[in-house]
Design a protein around this nucleic acid. Structure first.
Length: 572
RNA sequence: CGGGACGUGGCGCAGUUUGGUAGCGCGCAGCGUUCGGGACGCUGAGGUCGUGGGUUCAAAUCCCGCCGUCCCGACCA
């Protein structure tokens, strides 16, 4: 492609309020333009990257036996009602009505459609199957942000596996985990698989692939010693033992003005240290008020609460709701003697005695609380948020907390969808079984942004060869001089014949502009063809990553580039 | 949805406090000089000031409504 004919609208003034660096660079480099909140036009340069990302994904998913289909994105609302996700997805689901007044939705994922397609299967001999699709998904995000990282319309590769039994699912899950790892590494992403919560997708086990980045929105816990890694929504750690002493009688004592765990602990350091207190939170789970109990020095992880209770929505109760329910303000709350309200307690409180908690009367607390004796715990669960530096649950090494971008997520769905849609096959004995499903997703545009987020410098983007919009840029200095232009054209043809994707910068611009633009858009290799070198039959080759420059004979550089580029197409 | 900010040529902004009929930089077009690290001179094109209403002799500017965008909090590839 000749730059003078290409549509590459680079910008000198970056978007002022764009937060994520990938967003600034993709806009400045002429890869994307925003149309509205969370929807972007992918410009030609961006589309070339997107196509390469898609091709890598296709190769790897095909490589483990995947078969691509194209399901519709416009779905009858009825199938979402049947799976229960019409309600569960809340406002994130785009809903519309057709001219006849029928309800439609725009697909967020395709579990329903693929389950219905799987109705065609009737025998275990047809299994396993790996099906996938790669096209537009819609999500009415409450707050699109950070450019391509969080949008309302995007391309997702989602695949679905169909197995006859749990072993098949488990085996396939590991295969897919490997395929995902290869996909990300070929894209130049250092993605790690972490234990995750399955959220609204349903299912048992799930693994998220996270790329370390400040632009990420998830917190990940990893162990410095072993390979334990988990999303904070799932992560656990070793909790210090607390010596509670002998059980004693339940009592009340005045605590005027003491409204925080810290203040109470400072006033009564021997008996009411933070780890000797019960933190009582009032939450509203799908409209139901519940009490959530934690050790005083621990914080709640809301997703854990959702997972433990199978609730869809959780929010802290308002001060008014709390007073109406318990008769006291936050700071004096407790679960002792509370009746008719569901109580969910963190595992670390199990068996504890001699604890301190609010008495549901302002300025009063209970002491000597024996949780088994004095509180009617309805459910025990792991609810606490892991903190940085706590011991790893596997090896007791120190845990580290970091922010990551979720570039992929794989789920074991189980039989949720096959049972609701009646997808059964017969085994060798003629017995019917619901098909066991798994689902696996990668967001293409988010993946692109994650590459930029982790691979750039002060000059601009540094694309890995595998996803670069062009592999080589020929920067012609003095494009107005016949000699240099002829040399550049010759090289352009030769590289083209070798199958290398090359951008010929034939614009009549000053050298500084051309260098800066080439660096901004991040082409991995630059060949500089200038009058000085052409006279002596040489050109310069600069590698974008590291900006090392070496001189080559004009007639040898194409062969050298082919050696550099071709192997790197598969990885870095 | 709650909180904060913004909306003025293609892009980035000033002008709004104190109403008087729109300006700067970049980019763009033409000519010339330059050109191995974001050149310079001259000339020129380009704006319903987000939108609807109101106040006024007069509104980018004051008042009200609406729309849009961004940032901070609860959701996900």
């Amino acid at each position: 492609m000749r730059w003078s004919k290409a549509f590459i609208p680079t910008l000198r003034d970056p978007p002022a309020d764009a937060e994520a660096i990938s967003h600034r660079l993709l806009v400045r480099g002429g890869f994307i333009r925003q149309l509205a909140a969370g929807s972007y036009t992918i410009l030609p340069l961006g589309q070339r990257v997107r196509l390469k990302v898609g091709a890598i994904i296709r190769e790897e998913i095909d490589g483990i036996g995947g078969q691509e289909m194209v399901p519709p994105t416009l779905h009858p609302a009825e199938i979402w009602r049947r799976s229960g996700r019409y309600e569960m997805m809340g406002d994130n689901l785009f809903r519309l009505e057709d001219r006849k007044g029928s309800d439609l939705v725009l697909g967020m994922t395709e579990e329903e459609v693929f389950a219905l397609t799987a109705l065609e299967l009737s025998s275990y001999r047809d299994l396993p199957q790996i099906w996938y699709q790669m096209h537009t998904k819609f999500r009415d995000e409450p707050r699109p942000k950070s450019g391509l990282l969080r949008v309302r319309e995007f391309t997702m590769k989602d695949s679905y596996t169909l197995d006859i039994d749990q072993e098949g699912l488990d085996l396939g899950f590991e295969k897919r985990r490997g395929a995902y790892q290869r996909i990300f590494s070929r894209m130049g992403l250092d993605a790690v698989g972490v234990e995750a919560s399955s959220g609204a997708m349903g299912g048992s086990e799930s693994v998220e692939f996270m790329v370390r980045s400040e632009a990420g929105e998830d917190w990940i816990v990893t162990c410095a010693n072993c390979d334990y890694r988990a999303n904070v929504e799932r992560a656990t750690s070793v909790v210090s033992e607390v010596d509670d002493g002998e059980p004693s009688r339940l009592d009340r004592f005045p605590t005027p003005g003491l409204r925080t765990i810290k203040a109470l602990a400072e006033a009564h350091p021997e008996t009411a240290g933070p780890d000797r207190q019960i933190k009582t939170l009032v939450y509203v789970l799908d409209g139901e008020q519940v009490l959530v109990l934690l050790r005083g020095d621990h914080d709640l992880q809301e997703q854990k609460l959702l997972d433990a209770t199978a609730a869809v929505e959780a929010r802290p109760a308002t001060p008014e709701e709390i007073r109406a329910l318990l008769g006291a303000d936050p700071g004096s709350l407790g679960a002792v003697g509370v009746d008719g309200v569901r109580i969910i307690a963190d595992e670390t409180l199990r068996g504890r005695v001699n604890l301190v908690t609010g008495a549901n009367e302002d300025d009063w607390h209970h002491s000597g609380v024996d949780i088994g004796r004095d509180i009617e715990v309805g459910q025990w669960a792991d609810l606490r948020a892991v903190a940085s530096g706590e011991p790893c649950p596997v090896c007791a090494g120190p845990l580290e907390l970091w922010k990551g971008i979720e570039v992929g997520h794989i789920f074991k769905l189980g039989t949720k969808y096959s049972e609701t849609f009646g997808v059964y096959v017969q085994d060798e004995k003629g017995e019917s079984h619901p098909i066991i499903m798994g689902s696996y997703g990668i967001g293409l545009e988010r993946g692109m942004a994650a590459v930029v987020e982790t691979s750039h410098d002060e000059k601009g983007i540094i694309w890995p060869v595998s996803v670069a919009p062009y592999e080589v840029v020929i920067t012609v200095l003095r494009a107005d001089e016949a000699g240099t232009m002829a040399a550049a054209e010759g090289l352009y043809r030769e590289l083209g014949e070798r199958g290398i994707e090359v951008l010929l910068d034939d614009r009549e611009e000053r050298p500084g502009v051309k260098f800066a633009d080439a660096e901004l858009i991040g082409i991995p290799y630059r060949v500089t063809v200038g009058p000085r070198g052409v006279e002596s039959g040489t050109v310069e080759l600069t590698e974008r990553r590291g900006m090392e420059t070496a001189e080559f004979a004009l007639d040898a550089v194409a062969a050298h580039l082919a050696e550099m580029v071709v192997p790197r197409r598969y990885g870095i």
